[in-house]
Nucleic acid binder design. Sequence first.
DNA 1: ACAACTTAGTTGAGGGTTCAACTATTCCCC
DNA 2: GGGGAATAGTTGAACCCTCAACTAAGTTGT
Lengths: 160, 160
Amino acid sequence: MTGVTDAQQHAWRELVMATHLLDEALDRQSQRDGGMPHAYYKLLVLLYESPGHGQTMSGLAAQLRYSLSRLTHAVTSMERSGWLRRSRSADDRRVQTVSLTDAGVTVVRRVSPLQASEVRSRVFARLSDEQVNQLAAIGSAIVAGLDAGPTERDSDRLND
Amino acid sequence: MTGVTDAQQHAWRELVMATHLLDEALDRQSQRDGGMPHAYYKLLVLLYESPGHGQTMSGLAAQLRYSLSRLTHAVTSMERSGWLRRSRSADDRRVQTVSLTDAGVTVVRRVSPLQASEVRSRVFARLSDEQVNQLAAIGSAIVAGLDAGPTERDSDRLND
DNA sequence: ACAACTTAGTTGAGGGTTCAACTATTCCCC
DNA sequence: GGGGAATAGTTGAACCCTCAACTAAGTTGT
Protein backbone atom coordinates (compact mmCIF):
# COMPACT_ATOMS: atom_id res chain seq x y z
CA MET A 1 0.00 0.00 0.00
CA THR A 2 1.94 2.95 -1.27
CA GLY A 3 -1.11 5.16 -0.82
CA VAL A 4 -0.81 7.47 -3.78
CA THR A 5 -4.25 8.61 -4.85
CA ASP A 6 -5.35 8.97 -8.45
CA ALA A 7 -5.36 12.74 -8.13
CA GLN A 8 -1.81 12.63 -6.81
CA GLN A 9 -0.76 10.29 -9.57
CA HIS A 10 -2.20 12.63 -12.17
CA ALA A 11 -0.66 15.73 -10.62
CA TRP A 12 2.64 13.92 -10.41
CA ARG A 13 2.72 13.05 -14.07
CA GLU A 14 1.87 16.59 -15.06
CA LEU A 15 4.57 17.87 -12.76
CA VAL A 16 7.22 15.55 -14.10
CA MET A 17 6.36 16.37 -17.69
CA ALA A 18 6.25 20.08 -16.91
CA THR A 19 9.69 20.01 -15.30
CA HIS A 20 11.07 18.03 -18.20
CA LEU A 21 9.74 20.47 -20.78
CA LEU A 22 10.72 23.43 -18.67
CA ASP A 23 14.30 22.29 -18.35
CA GLU A 24 14.53 21.67 -22.04
CA ALA A 25 13.01 25.00 -22.93
CA LEU A 26 15.25 26.88 -20.53
CA ASP A 27 18.37 25.20 -21.76
CA ARG A 28 17.49 25.71 -25.36
CA GLN A 29 16.75 29.36 -24.80
CA SER A 30 19.88 30.04 -22.76
CA GLN A 31 21.88 28.25 -25.38
CA ARG A 32 20.33 30.22 -28.20
CA ASP A 33 20.39 33.67 -26.58
CA GLY A 34 23.43 33.41 -24.38
CA GLY A 35 25.47 30.53 -25.72
CA MET A 36 25.39 28.67 -22.43
CA PRO A 37 23.24 26.16 -20.55
CA HIS A 38 20.61 27.50 -18.22
CA ALA A 39 22.53 26.33 -15.17
CA TYR A 40 25.35 28.65 -16.19
CA TYR A 41 23.00 31.52 -16.82
CA LYS A 42 21.53 31.15 -13.33
CA LEU A 43 25.03 31.45 -11.96
CA LEU A 44 25.62 34.66 -13.88
CA VAL A 45 22.34 36.11 -12.65
CA LEU A 46 23.13 35.26 -9.05
CA LEU A 47 26.50 36.95 -9.36
CA TYR A 48 24.86 39.92 -11.01
CA GLU A 49 22.55 40.35 -8.06
CA SER A 50 25.32 39.94 -5.50
CA PRO A 51 27.02 42.92 -3.86
CA GLY A 52 29.96 43.89 -6.03
CA HIS A 53 28.91 41.27 -8.60
CA GLY A 54 30.99 38.78 -6.66
CA GLN A 55 30.77 35.86 -4.23
CA THR A 56 32.73 32.87 -2.97
CA MET A 57 32.44 29.45 -4.55
CA SER A 58 30.82 27.99 -1.47
CA GLY A 59 28.34 30.83 -1.25
CA LEU A 60 27.29 30.36 -4.84
CA ALA A 61 27.04 26.61 -4.45
CA ALA A 62 24.87 26.95 -1.37
CA GLN A 63 22.43 29.38 -2.93
CA LEU A 64 22.14 27.53 -6.22
CA ARG A 65 22.19 24.09 -4.63
CA TYR A 66 25.02 23.03 -6.89
CA SER A 67 27.78 20.72 -5.80
CA LEU A 68 31.15 22.38 -5.45
CA SER A 69 32.42 20.11 -8.15
CA ARG A 70 29.74 21.19 -10.57
CA LEU A 71 30.43 24.78 -9.71
CA THR A 72 34.17 24.37 -10.24
CA HIS A 73 33.59 22.93 -13.70
CA ALA A 74 31.10 25.65 -14.51
CA VAL A 75 33.31 28.46 -13.31
CA THR A 76 36.30 27.05 -15.17
CA SER A 77 34.32 26.95 -18.36
CA MET A 78 32.79 30.39 -17.93
CA GLU A 79 36.14 31.85 -17.05
CA ARG A 80 37.41 30.57 -20.38
CA SER A 81 34.41 32.25 -21.99
CA GLY A 82 35.42 35.49 -20.32
CA TRP A 83 32.23 36.08 -18.32
CA LEU A 84 33.76 35.88 -14.88
CA ARG A 85 37.03 35.70 -13.03
CA ARG A 86 38.38 33.98 -9.95
CA SER A 87 40.52 35.57 -7.30
CA ARG A 88 41.91 34.02 -4.17
CA SER A 89 40.95 35.68 -0.93
CA ALA A 90 43.78 37.28 1.02
CA ASP A 91 42.78 36.41 4.57
CA ASP A 92 41.69 32.82 3.93
CA ARG A 93 43.67 31.47 1.06
CA ARG A 94 41.43 28.47 0.52
CA VAL A 95 38.62 30.77 -0.56
CA GLN A 96 38.02 31.77 -4.15
CA THR A 97 35.99 34.84 -4.90
CA VAL A 98 34.23 34.73 -8.24
CA SER A 99 33.13 37.95 -9.89
CA LEU A 100 31.53 38.98 -13.14
CA THR A 101 33.63 40.62 -15.80
CA ASP A 102 32.23 43.47 -17.86
CA ALA A 103 31.43 40.94 -20.55
CA GLY A 104 29.52 38.94 -17.95
CA VAL A 105 27.50 41.95 -16.89
CA THR A 106 26.75 42.70 -20.52
CA VAL A 107 25.56 39.21 -21.30
CA VAL A 108 23.20 39.17 -18.30
CA ARG A 109 21.73 42.49 -19.33
CA ARG A 110 21.31 41.28 -22.87
CA VAL A 111 19.83 37.86 -22.12
CA SER A 112 17.59 38.56 -19.15
CA PRO A 113 14.89 40.52 -20.99
CA LEU A 114 14.70 37.77 -23.61
CA GLN A 115 14.39 35.21 -20.86
CA ALA A 116 11.69 37.24 -19.14
CA SER A 117 9.69 37.68 -22.29
CA GLU A 118 9.78 33.99 -23.02
CA VAL A 119 8.77 33.09 -19.50
CA ARG A 120 5.91 35.50 -19.61
CA SER A 121 4.54 34.36 -22.93
CA ARG A 122 5.07 30.62 -22.52
CA VAL A 123 4.27 30.17 -18.85
CA PHE A 124 2.50 33.07 -17.20
CA ALA A 125 0.29 33.87 -20.15
CA ARG A 126 -1.60 30.69 -19.33
CA LEU A 127 -1.87 31.15 -15.58
CA SER A 128 -4.36 33.28 -13.70
CA ASP A 129 -3.17 35.59 -10.94
CA GLU A 130 -4.57 33.14 -8.47
CA GLN A 131 -2.65 30.29 -10.04
CA VAL A 132 0.54 32.31 -9.83
CA ASN A 133 0.09 32.56 -6.09
CA GLN A 134 -0.79 28.89 -5.84
CA LEU A 135 2.31 28.05 -7.82
CA ALA A 136 4.51 30.04 -5.49
CA ALA A 137 3.07 28.23 -2.48
CA ILE A 138 3.30 24.79 -4.05
CA GLY A 139 6.80 25.47 -5.33
CA SER A 140 8.02 26.50 -1.96
CA ALA A 141 6.44 23.43 -0.35
CA ILE A 142 8.24 21.22 -2.85
CA VAL A 143 11.50 23.03 -2.26
CA ALA A 144 11.03 22.54 1.46
CA GLY A 145 10.41 18.83 0.98
CA LEU A 146 13.41 18.27 -1.23
CA ASP A 147 15.95 20.65 0.17
CA ALA A 148 18.63 19.42 2.50
CA GLY A 149 19.00 15.92 1.19
CA PRO A 150 17.43 12.54 1.87
CA THR A 151 16.34 12.26 5.48
CA GLU A 152 14.51 9.15 6.70
CA ARG A 153 12.96 7.22 3.85
CA ASP A 154 11.65 4.01 5.41
CA SER A 155 10.50 5.21 8.76
CA ASP A 156 8.47 7.93 7.15
CA ARG A 157 6.71 9.21 10.21
CA LEU A 158 5.12 12.17 8.54
CA ASN A 159 1.94 10.59 7.25
CA ASP A 160 0.82 7.15 8.30
CA MET B 1 8.68 46.68 -20.63
CA THR B 2 8.97 42.98 -19.99
CA GLY B 3 5.96 43.17 -17.69
CA VAL B 4 6.72 40.44 -15.19
CA THR B 5 5.07 41.23 -11.87
CA ASP B 6 6.69 40.67 -8.50
CA ALA B 7 4.33 37.81 -7.78
CA GLN B 8 5.27 36.19 -11.06
CA GLN B 9 8.94 36.73 -10.38
CA HIS B 10 8.60 35.09 -7.02
CA ALA B 11 6.59 32.17 -8.32
CA TRP B 12 9.10 31.76 -11.13
CA ARG B 13 12.04 31.49 -8.79
CA GLU B 14 10.28 28.93 -6.63
CA LEU B 15 9.36 26.97 -9.72
CA VAL B 16 12.87 26.96 -11.10
CA MET B 17 14.35 25.91 -7.78
CA ALA B 18 11.69 23.25 -7.33
CA THR B 19 12.37 21.75 -10.74
CA HIS B 20 16.09 21.81 -10.09
CA LEU B 21 15.74 20.01 -6.79
CA LEU B 22 13.15 17.65 -8.18
CA ASP B 23 15.36 16.58 -11.05
CA GLU B 24 18.26 16.02 -8.76
CA ALA B 25 16.20 14.05 -6.29
CA LEU B 26 14.65 11.90 -9.00
CA ASP B 27 17.97 11.14 -10.60
CA ARG B 28 19.59 10.33 -7.33
CA GLN B 29 16.80 8.02 -6.34
CA SER B 30 16.61 6.23 -9.68
CA GLN B 31 20.34 5.85 -9.60
CA ARG B 32 20.32 4.46 -6.09
CA ASP B 33 17.32 2.12 -6.41
CA GLY B 34 17.54 1.15 -10.04
CA GLY B 35 21.07 1.92 -11.15
CA MET B 36 19.91 4.26 -13.90
CA PRO B 37 19.03 7.93 -14.42
CA HIS B 38 15.42 8.94 -14.00
CA ALA B 39 15.04 9.55 -17.74
CA TYR B 40 15.79 5.88 -18.29
CA TYR B 41 13.41 4.79 -15.61
CA LYS B 42 10.61 6.78 -17.21
CA LEU B 43 11.27 4.93 -20.41
CA LEU B 44 11.00 1.58 -18.65
CA VAL B 45 7.74 2.61 -17.01
CA LEU B 46 6.24 3.75 -20.29
CA LEU B 47 7.15 0.44 -21.88
CA TYR B 48 5.74 -1.40 -18.90
CA GLU B 49 2.40 0.33 -19.36
CA SER B 50 2.32 -0.26 -23.10
CA PRO B 51 0.39 -3.17 -24.66
CA GLY B 52 2.75 -6.14 -24.82
CA HIS B 53 5.39 -4.13 -22.95
CA GLY B 54 6.56 -2.83 -26.32
CA GLN B 55 6.51 0.20 -28.60
CA THR B 56 8.36 1.76 -31.50
CA MET B 57 11.21 4.21 -31.04
CA SER B 58 9.20 7.05 -32.50
CA GLY B 59 6.21 6.27 -30.33
CA LEU B 60 8.33 6.33 -27.21
CA ALA B 61 10.08 9.51 -28.24
CA ALA B 62 6.78 11.25 -28.91
CA GLN B 63 5.22 10.30 -25.59
CA LEU B 64 8.28 11.09 -23.53
CA ARG B 65 9.22 14.18 -25.54
CA TYR B 66 12.70 12.84 -26.04
CA SER B 67 14.68 13.36 -29.21
CA LEU B 68 15.19 10.25 -31.29
CA SER B 69 18.89 10.64 -30.76
CA ARG B 70 18.54 10.68 -27.02
CA LEU B 71 16.28 7.69 -27.22
CA THR B 72 18.70 5.77 -29.41
CA HIS B 73 21.51 6.34 -26.95
CA ALA B 74 19.26 5.42 -24.04
CA VAL B 75 17.97 2.25 -25.67
CA THR B 76 21.47 1.21 -26.67
CA SER B 77 22.64 1.60 -23.11
CA MET B 78 19.65 -0.14 -21.57
CA GLU B 79 19.89 -2.96 -24.06
CA ARG B 80 23.44 -3.52 -22.83
CA SER B 81 22.05 -3.55 -19.30
CA GLY B 82 19.60 -6.25 -20.34
CA TRP B 83 16.38 -4.40 -19.51
CA LEU B 84 14.99 -4.23 -23.03
CA ARG B 85 15.50 -5.47 -26.53
CA ARG B 86 15.13 -4.09 -30.05
CA SER B 87 13.54 -5.84 -32.96
CA ARG B 88 13.06 -4.60 -36.46
CA SER B 89 9.50 -4.54 -37.72
CA ALA B 90 8.72 -6.88 -40.59
CA ASP B 91 6.37 -4.71 -42.64
CA ASP B 92 8.31 -1.44 -42.32
CA ARG B 93 11.95 -2.19 -41.97
CA ARG B 94 12.87 1.30 -40.80
CA VAL B 95 10.89 0.75 -37.63
CA GLN B 96 12.38 -0.64 -34.45
CA THR B 97 10.13 -2.11 -31.83
CA VAL B 98 11.50 -1.89 -28.31
CA SER B 99 10.22 -4.23 -25.65
CA LEU B 100 10.96 -4.97 -22.02
CA THR B 101 12.83 -8.11 -21.12
CA ASP B 102 11.86 -10.07 -18.02
CA ALA B 103 14.67 -8.32 -16.21
CA GLY B 104 13.16 -5.01 -17.29
CA VAL B 105 9.75 -5.97 -15.95
CA THR B 106 11.34 -7.05 -12.71
CA VAL B 107 13.24 -3.83 -12.22
CA VAL B 108 10.13 -1.72 -12.80
CA ARG B 109 8.20 -3.74 -10.27
CA ARG B 110 11.02 -3.44 -7.78
CA VAL B 111 11.71 0.26 -8.18
CA SER B 112 8.26 1.73 -8.62
CA PRO B 113 7.03 1.28 -5.06
CA LEU B 114 10.21 2.87 -3.76
CA GLN B 115 9.72 5.75 -6.12
CA ALA B 116 6.10 6.13 -5.07
CA SER B 117 6.93 6.11 -1.40
CA GLU B 118 9.56 8.78 -1.86
CA VAL B 119 7.24 10.95 -3.91
CA ARG B 120 4.55 10.63 -1.34
CA SER B 121 6.70 11.49 1.62
CA ARG B 122 8.80 14.21 0.05
CA VAL B 123 6.25 15.95 -2.12
CA PHE B 124 2.65 15.10 -1.40
CA ALA B 125 3.07 14.98 2.34
CA ARG B 126 3.41 18.75 2.22
CA LEU B 127 0.54 19.49 -0.14
CA SER B 128 -3.15 19.70 0.71
CA ASP B 129 -5.69 17.92 -1.47
CA GLU B 130 -6.62 21.26 -2.90
CA GLN B 131 -3.02 22.02 -3.76
CA VAL B 132 -2.73 18.68 -5.51
CA ASN B 133 -5.56 19.67 -7.81
CA GLN B 134 -4.08 23.11 -8.32
CA LEU B 135 -0.78 21.52 -9.17
CA ALA B 136 -2.36 19.31 -11.79
CA ALA B 137 -4.03 22.29 -13.42
CA ILE B 138 -0.92 24.46 -13.32
CA GLY B 139 1.26 21.62 -14.54
CA SER B 140 -0.95 20.96 -17.48
CA ALA B 141 -1.04 24.67 -18.36
CA ILE B 142 2.74 24.75 -18.32
CA VAL B 143 2.94 21.63 -20.44
CA ALA B 144 0.52 23.21 -22.89
CA GLY B 145 2.63 26.34 -23.06
CA LEU B 146 5.89 24.54 -23.62
CA ASP B 147 4.88 21.58 -25.68
CA ALA B 148 5.39 21.62 -29.41
CA GLY B 149 8.40 23.83 -29.61
CA PRO B 150 9.07 27.54 -29.96
CA THR B 151 6.26 29.21 -31.86
CA GLU B 152 6.24 33.00 -32.23
CA ARG B 153 8.43 34.65 -29.70
CA ASP B 154 8.51 38.32 -30.65
CA SER B 155 5.02 38.82 -32.01
CA ASP B 156 3.55 37.38 -28.86
CA ARG B 157 -0.08 37.98 -29.59
CA LEU B 158 -1.36 36.08 -26.60
CA ASN B 159 -1.22 38.83 -24.04
CA ASP B 160 -0.76 42.42 -25.00
C1' DA C 1 53.93 23.35 18.29
C1' DC C 2 52.29 19.24 16.29
C1' DA C 3 48.83 15.85 14.92
C1' DA C 4 44.15 15.19 13.79
C1' DC C 5 40.22 17.14 11.90
C1' DT C 6 37.55 20.20 9.19
C1' DT C 7 36.77 23.36 5.46
C1' DA C 8 37.43 25.06 0.53
C1' DG C 9 38.03 23.85 -3.70
C1' DT C 10 40.01 20.93 -7.72
C1' DT C 11 40.65 16.97 -10.72
C1' DG C 12 39.64 13.18 -13.89
C1' DA C 13 37.00 9.38 -15.30
C1' DG C 14 32.55 7.79 -16.73
C1' DG C 15 28.25 8.38 -18.43
C1' DG C 16 24.17 11.21 -20.44
C1' DT C 17 22.44 14.78 -23.74
C1' DT C 18 22.62 17.71 -27.74
C1' DC C 19 23.45 18.84 -32.32
C1' DA C 20 24.56 18.03 -36.97
C1' DA C 21 25.49 14.82 -40.31
C1' DC C 22 24.49 10.46 -41.97
C1' DT C 23 22.17 5.70 -43.67
C1' DA C 24 18.32 3.11 -44.88
C1' DT C 25 13.61 2.52 -46.15
C1' DT C 26 9.17 3.92 -47.76
C1' DC C 27 5.97 7.26 -49.96
C1' DC C 28 4.45 10.20 -53.71
C1' DC C 29 3.44 11.08 -58.18
C1' DC C 30 4.23 12.09 -62.90
C1' DG D 1 8.56 2.59 -62.23
C1' DG D 2 12.12 5.83 -61.10
C1' DG D 3 13.63 10.11 -58.85
C1' DG D 4 12.81 13.12 -55.29
C1' DA D 5 10.98 13.99 -50.68
C1' DA D 6 9.63 12.37 -46.31
C1' DT D 7 10.19 9.09 -42.41
C1' DA D 8 12.84 6.14 -38.98
C1' DG D 9 16.61 5.68 -36.78
C1' DT D 10 21.91 5.85 -35.93
C1' DT D 11 26.43 7.86 -35.17
C1' DG D 12 30.20 10.63 -33.17
C1' DA D 13 31.93 14.72 -31.24
C1' DA D 14 31.43 18.22 -27.83
C1' DC D 15 29.81 19.44 -23.65
C1' DC D 16 27.81 19.01 -18.91
C1' DC D 17 27.26 16.61 -14.58
C1' DT D 18 28.24 13.12 -10.96
C1' DC D 19 31.06 10.70 -8.03
C1' DA D 20 35.17 9.60 -5.69
C1' DA D 21 39.68 10.77 -4.76
C1' DC D 22 42.63 14.34 -3.99
C1' DT D 23 45.37 18.97 -2.52
C1' DA D 24 45.79 22.84 0.25
C1' DA D 25 44.81 25.81 4.07
C1' DG D 26 42.84 26.73 8.49
C1' DT D 27 41.27 25.01 13.29
C1' DT D 28 41.53 22.53 17.61
C1' DG D 29 43.22 20.17 21.52
C1' DT D 30 46.85 19.12 24.37
